[in-house]
């Protein structure tokens, strides 16, 4: 029987003033009540980041797993949610993140990997966005997708914390 991780960090990344870039922040907002008992028990921390992303390397200290939600642009239809497991390796180079920051989520994760400072599990939920205009509000389809993604993230966090019988 394997042991579930002791603590999971959930991070929503985005900019609320830049259209669909708010997707990650909305995931954090929706996931917080779903994980409230676990957060109260100190097993989960839900956080948001809306600037440059190097603070991720400090945020995930003490967590054995991190689940990040961020807007992505892969060419898929807006609102499509894709799960990436970055534990073993980086994102495919072909995937471009909708980030104007000097260090994207992928950059911060890879810097953490190079420095041997990655948690044991690193999961990314990418929510496909379309419009990232300044001052724009998030589109209805992306807002809906973020709410739906939050339920999936909550389920994954619960699974990460649960001891599992080895296959």
């Amino acid at each position: 029987m394997s042991i579930g991780v002791a603590r999971v960090l959930v991070v929503g990344v985005g900019n609320a003033a830049r259209g669909d870039d708010a997707a990650g922040l909305l995931v954090a907002q929706h996931v917080r009540p779903l994980l409230a008992p676990l957060e109260a028990a100190g097993r989960v921390v839900v956080a948001t980041l809306d600037g440059e992303l190097l603070p991720l390397l400090d945020l995930w200290r003490g967590a054995q797993a991190v689940v990040v939600a961020d807007a992505v642009t892969t060419g898929a239809p807006p609102g499509e949610v894709t799960r990436f497991d970055l534990t073993a390796g980086p994102l495919p180079a072909s995937l471009r993140f909708a980030s104007t920051h000097a260090f994207s989520v992928a950059g911060a994760v890879e810097l953490g990997r190079a420095l041997g400072r990655l948690p044991d599990r690193v999961i990314l939920y990418g929510i496909e966005g379309r419009s990232f205009d300044y001052g724009a509000t998030v589109s209805a389809v992306v807002a809906g997708a973020a709410a739906a993604a939050a339920a999936v993230v909550a389920a994954e966090v619960a699974a990460l914390l649960t001891p599992r019988r080895a296959a």
């Binding site: 400090d58 890879e110 420095l115």
Partner: peptide, 22 residues
């Protein structure tokens, strides 16, 4: 900086910078 951090001789430089920034 990711490529720099992969070089053992340069890793302390990156680590120190991250700590200063923090």
């Amino acid at each position: 900086a990711i490529a720099m951090a992969q070089v053992p001789a340069l890793r302390p430089l990156v680590e120190r910078a991250l700590r200063m920034k923090q």
